[in-house]
């Protein structure tokens, strides 16, 4: 194709740019846009569907959690830890020097203002996704009175911050807010 047609095509353009070059470029660009437009629905169909998204937020009654204890709830298929912290645990978390932390973050930024006794965390280890121990009574809380991940030995403190072990980041605080004094809405 190249030689014979190329030489014929150069006759109707100057400087080596031909009408054919233009047509090929325009066709190629159009095909690219068309291809992307077709690909989009096929990629997008794999994202969460409307009914999945509709279940994406939950409300939790926290009034039944005694001080010093925690519960696990399921949110978006993952566990969320809700811990009613004691004064000692709050003080311990607030007293840590930020320079001692692998992922420095003050405790006050991990709780809602004036609700420091409530710690809400996504209960998924930031290392490789296991669920750390320390929520249910009788489970080990690790060396820092928080959580301990049995998979690879990450220790989290009473603010859910990583202190020791392979996990790179603190336990994630989900998007939540207090609907009333006793009910929080997660997501």
């Amino acid at each position: 194709m190249a030689d014979s047609e190329g030489s014929a095509a150069t006759e109707d353009g100057d400087g080596g740019e031909t009408r054919r070059d233009f047509l090929q470029l325009a066709t190629g660009a159009f095909a690219l846009v068309g291809g992307a437009a077709v690909a989009w629905p096929f990629i997008q169909q794999m994202n969460p569907a409307a009914d999945t998204l509709a279940l994406a937020s939950i409300e939790v009654d926290i009034s039944k959690i005694p001080e010093g204890q925690a519960i696990k709830v399921k949110w978006r298929g993952k566990p969320v830890f809700i811990r009613h912290r004691t004064k000692a645990e709050i003080d311990e978390a607030a007293g840590v020097k930020l320079t001692d932390l692998p992922d420095p973050e003050p405790d006050s930024e991990r709780v809602k203002k004036g609700e420091a006794e409530w710690l809400v965390l996504v209960g998924v280890c930031t290392h490789l996704g296991c669920i750390p121990l320390g929520t249910s009574q009788g489970e080990t809380k690790g060396e820092y009175d928080g959580w301990f991940c049995p998979c690879h030995g990450s220790h989290y403190d009473s603010s859910g911050r990583i202190r020791k072990g392979p996990a790179p980041r603190n336990l994630e605080v989900p998007d939540y807010n207090f609907i009333s004094d006793s009910v929080i809405k997660i997501g």
Partner: peptide, 10 residues
């Protein structure tokens, strides 16, 4: 048809 993104189209 109703919930999946572009499911109706596909």
């Amino acid at each position: 048809m109703r919930d999946v993104n572009y499911g109706w189209l596909i």
